[in-house]
Amino acid sequence: MSGPATRALRLGTRKSLLATTQSGLVADLLTERTGAAVELTGVTTFGDVTKAHLAQLGGTGVFVSALRDKLLDGEVDFAVHSLKDLPTAPAEGIALAAVVARHDPRDVLVAGAKLADLPTGARVGTGSPRRVAQLRAIRPDLEYVPIRGNADTRIGKVQSGELAGVVLAAAGLQRIGREEVVAQIFDIDEMLPAPGQGALAVECRADRADLLDLLAALDDPPTRAAVAAERSVLAALEAGCAAPVGAYAVTSGNTVDLTAAVISADGRRSVRKSASGPMSEAMGLGRDLAAAMISDGADTLMGEQTH
């Protein structure tokens, strides 16, 4: 088997601070573990240039397709994505080469006070229907508004007083060193994360056996099993349920413990279930849990979207 390529590997990344920081972490980890030289190649995606809100675009995929096109064209060798942005359907010619060990999966509130202490009618920004539904379950008296932009832009809307708060992923703020703005970290029980939240996905072309071997050095099997369970819940539900979905799994030994919920848009109703199974059966565990949730009425929680 040949060693690392003599030229630097081209790592395709979105150009935002968070994306380049995450890609830099993966590049450094690969160099540390394999000795491979890596250079970052910036790519502009549809999600970066569109003015539409992500919920209108279907959420996942808008940050991913341009990077995958560059992979298939041979312009970059591999790419790093926030795993929660990755569509659940497989992409032809693309392999999930590694799932890097997960960081903090939780959601956080950036505000001047905790959620419970915000005044009635306060405006809280988030582009995620999953977050809005769970926030409404806790504080139905607040106004939840769609928001776009990178982390600094969103934080700025709070600091300028335009919004009372914004909800973001803990891992992203930790990676860019902005933890000081966090007013509250939500418990997993009160704010179930998006499937794959906090984890990074590494993709390359499926026909690059040399790269698949090399990138395997980045893979964390417990994280891969956990996110496989979470994403299989989402994949099974997406066919018949557009309601907000949260899912989170942890591994212990060879066992995966999975919890998932479908929440109505108004936050008033939810179907929440948990199950456990072997790591080797993570995807089946997720599918079975989704089927049980549908049997309990998860597919009826569509409702009218409230604004």
Rank of each mutant, 00 (worst) to 15 (best):
G93R: 02
R272N: 07
G165R: 04
A199V: 13
F186L: 09
L25P: 00
S252H: 02
K157L: 15
Q56W: 12
P129M: 14
R269N: 14
V80Q: 10
E162S: 04
L200R: 10
T223H: 15
D220Y: 11
L237K: 03
A101S: 15
K70L: 03
G58P: 06
L9K: 07
A249D: 06
T21M: 07
D220H: 15
R272I: 13
G297K: 06
G42W: 05
H53C: 08
S232P: 01
A236K: 09
G61Y: 04
D48S: 12
R123W: 01
G297W: 00
A201M: 12
V145Y: 03
L211I: 05
K114Q: 05
L86N: 08
A261S: 15
K114P: 06
D152H: 05
P140L: 04
A201W: 09
E92R: 12
K157V: 01
V158P: 10
A229E: 06
Q305F: 07
L285D: 15
R136K: 13
I294S: 06
V38R: 06
R102L: 04
A243P: 05
Q134Y: 08
S270T: 08
K70G: 02
A265P: 08
V145A: 09
T44G: 03
Y248P: 01
L71C: 05
Q22D: 14
L234K: 08
D213F: 02
A282D: 04
H103S: 13
A37C: 15
A133Q: 02
L86M: 12
G196P: 09
M1S: 15
L57M: 12
L142R: 11
M293E: 11
A89T: 10
V26M: 10
A209D: 12
D152W: 01
V166D: 11
S23P: 01
I94A: 12
L289Q: 09
A8F: 02
L96V: 11
T126F: 01
L173R: 14
L86A: 02
D77K: 15
V145H: 01
G253E: 04
N254D: 14
V181D: 04
A236P: 00
D117F: 02
Y144A: 14
T153Q: 00
R148G: 15
A79Q: 03
G177L: 00
L168H: 09
G165H: 08
G35M: 10
I294N: 13
R14M: 02
V181Q: 07
A225N: 03
E39K: 10
S2A: 15
G177H: 03
A194N: 11
A298S: 14
V227S: 07
L212M: 10
R123S: 00
L72A: 05
S276F: 11
Q184G: 07
G61K: 13
G284P: 02
E281N: 09
V26T: 13
A242F: 01
D189E: 14
A291C: 03
A79R: 03
G59V: 08
M279T: 14
A97T: 10
T44K: 00
P195N: 10
V64M: 03
P222V: 12
E281F: 15
